[in-house]
Structure formats: structure tokens, C-alpha cells
Write a protein that binds this DNA or RNA. Structure first.
Length: 335
DNA sequence: GCACAGCCAAAGAGGGTTTC
DNA sequence: GAAACCCTCTTTGGCTGTGC
């Protein structure tokens, strides 16, 4: 965790102690003082003690609620989301999903035996902005995406990684250095570099992608004149999100059709008779990766993109389908 | 000596904030 | 709402180190 994330944890703990009267603290043996992202929060009162594995999220919004929720749910122990501020709407959503949270203003939801605590509506306190580790800025996320799609690439020379990721050499150097500092990349000297804690890196990438990179990739939304997404996808555009997931799992009827474009938006819109509509069900994003993902569904975006799109939607059925995508197309390559 | 890989400093671009 | 300012991020280009 960065210093500012540690500060956020400290603020949230202090606020939680005040609003609940419980003794809330960080288990110092859990790794808060290290570079690890998680830490263990203990809550003690007359009824007993509970231990929760905390995940710090700098900027919790409805758009990244899905991936964040999935990440916390996937923790092996009971998770706890710590954010700078959780408004009433977000609090209701998190409570509905059964995800414990606390913020630096004293809002919190805990439903872990023997405690049930729900505090909402506390006003936002002045918050320190949480600095982002440089690996998880938009350009860094492109590099990490390349490494997650092709883990062997981590041992390639910087220039090849830069080319595949569509970023500069300096960005690759900065990103790999940051990943090394956080233990996601280990330099084995003559034996090259290796990716570590891949699953954790993947979960973190998905959250940060929804929040920081995906909004920058959005080229526009459209209404289809004809409803004919089946059979689409090719060298200049890839199916993503619900559209690809529907074909891969037969578990969804896509409400939103997502396309990642290599070519010009104008050409794609004309060819497919799309009408500009900010609320339309067709979304077009820029395909930022430069490599050919090695799988049989060449007309689709890489599975990591599909997985991230589904989680970013925040829809419970999409989140369920995302986990199917994860089990079938991602997990086998990381474990 | 040459080619390649990695690192680093400086400059530019872009986005956010403040002021009028 | 527009302009000015500031800060952060990213790229560029050159330097150094290493291997052949």
C-alpha cells in the first residue's frame, strides 16, 4: 500500500471506532507495514472479535462497483472494502451484495457474526487524495494487460513489450519497476523476469481498468439500425463484453453490444448503419492492444477484456457470467 | 568498435482547478 | 463560460553498460 492508502485505512479505522464504539484496529502482523495491498482489520467489542481482510479502493463509483465487489467476494477470508467515501446509493448496493465496507467518514456495513452494523449518511470529510502506484495509471494498465495476456512477455526486452502494448519505452521501464517494487514481477537475473501473484494482479487490473483506462477508450455510443451483432467481429473490430460472453457461454442475452475497434469509428458506424445515440445499446471502444491474442476466437477481444467489461457493468448476471469466463478462459493459464 | 538493452532527464501534452 | 495556471503523465532522445 502507498502511504496515502495507509492514511486512508487509518482514517477509516478511526471513524469506524467512533461511530460503532468498537475497538477497530489493523492487525500489525498482517502486512500493513509492507508493500502488500491487503491488511487485516480487527473489530473487538463485548460480543467478541471479528477479523476482516481489507481491500483499499481509492475511488469507488457505480461504474467500478462490479469489479470491486467481485474482488472482495473472491477473497479467501471475509473481505472488507475501505474507500474514501461511500454515499447512500453505493452503501445500499454494497449492503445488497453483502459486502462489508467502511469509509473515512464513519459510514460502514458489517454483517459478520456477532455483529450487524449499518451506518449511512455520514457527511464526507475532507479526504486526502490517494496516490496511485505508477504501474496502475492508464499507460501502465496497457503494459500489465500485455503481460497478463502473454505472461512470457515479461522476460522480453522492453522494446518488444512497448510495441505490443502501444506505449513508449520509458512507460515500460516505469511500469516494470513499479511492478517489481510491489512484488508482482520478480527479476531472476539470467533466468529473466517472472510474474508473481498473477491472480491478484489480474483482479487489481480489472478494477483499475474499469476506473482509469476504459473511460478513455470509449469512442461513442450508438443505436443499431439493424440488430445483427451475431456474425460480427473481424480484423478491424472485436466483440467484447456481453456480446462476446453471450457467444462464449450461451448464458446471456446482451443488453449492451460492445465493440473494440482497430479501424476508424466513422467507417465502422457507416458499415454497420449505426446512429449516434449517447444512451444507445452499442458501445464502441478503441482496441489498444497491438498483439494477436493466441486463441481460437480471433473475432473477439481477449478474454481478460471480456471479463473486465462484464464486471464493469455491475450487473449481477454479468458478474456471474464473468466468473464463468474467468474459470474457463483465464484461471487455467494462471494456476 | 558495434549493436542492443536499460535507464534517466527534459520537454510536451493533457486534464483539472482556480480566478475573473 | 473562458482563460490562466498548475500538476501529473507520457514520450523522446541521449547516455551508460554489457556482450560479442
Amino acid at each position: 500500500m502507498t502511504e496515502k492508502e495507509k492514511n486512508l485505512v487509518s482514517q477509516a479505522i478511526a471513524a469506524a471506532s467512533q461511530s460503532t464504539g468498537l475497538d477497530v484496529a489493523v492487525d500489525q502482523s498482517s502486512g500493513l507495514a509492507t508493500e502488500r495491498m491487503d491488511c487485516i482489520i480487527t473489530m473487538r467489542g463485548q460480543s467478541g472479535e471479528v477479523r476482516l481482510t481489507a481491500e483499499v479502493v481509492r475511488n469507488l463509483t457505480t461504474s467500478n462497483l462490479g469489479p470491486v465487489a467481485a474482488k472482495v467476494k473472491n477473497l479467501r477470508t471475509t473481505g472488507l472494502l475501505i474507500a474514501p467515501y461511500v454515499n447512500r446509493n453505493l452503501a445500499e448496493n454494497l449492503k445488497g451484495m453483502g459486502i462489508p465496507f467502511m469509509d473515512s467518514s464513519g459510514n460502514l456495513f458489517i454483517n459478520v457474526q456477532p455483529y450487524f452494523i449499518y451506518v449511512v449518511g455520514q457527511k464526507r470529510v475532507e479526504e486526502a487524495s490517494i496516490a496511485q502506484g505508477s504501474a496502475f495509471n492508464p499507460m501502465g494498465l496497457k503494459v500489465i494487460f500485455t503481460l497478463l495476456c502473454m505472461p512470457v512477455r515479461v522476460s522480453s526486452v522492453y522494446r518488444d513489450i512497448a510495441e505490443d502494448s502501444g506505449v513508449s519505452l520509458g512507460t515500460v521501464a516505469n511500469t516494470l519497476a513499479a511492478l517489481e517494487r510491489s512484488g508482482f514481477v520478480v527479476d531472476k537475473g539470467d533466468r529473466g523476469r517472472i510474474l508473481e501473484r498473477v491472480e491478484e494482479l489480474l483482479r487489481r487490473w480489472v478494477v483499475e481498468y474499469a476506473e482509469r483506462l476504459r473511460p478513455k477508450l470509449l469512442l461513442g455510443r450508438f443505436s443499431p439500425v439493424e440488430h445483427s451483432w451475431r456474425g460480427m467481429g473481424g480484423p478491424t473490430h472485436f466483440l467484447g463484453g456481453e456480446t462476446a460472453a453471450a457467444l462464449l457461454t450461451d448464458h446471456l442475452k446482451p443488453a449492451v453490444q460492445t465493440f473494440y475497434l482497430k479501424g476508424e469509428l466513422k467507417d465502422f458506424a457507416i458499415a454497420n448503419r449505426l446512429k449516434k445515440d449517447p444512451q444507445g445499446p452499442v458501445e464502441c471502444l478503441k482496441a489498444f492492444w497491438r498483439f494477436k491474442y493466441p486463441w481460437e476466437h480471433g473475432h473477439m477481444a481477449p478474454p481478460l477484456i471480456i471479463y473486465a467489461d462484464l464486471l464493469a457493468s455491475g450487473d449481477p448476471r454479468n458478474i456471474e457470467t464473468a466468473e464463468t469466463i474467468h474459470e474457463r478462459f483465464l484461471a487455467p493459464y494462471y494456476t
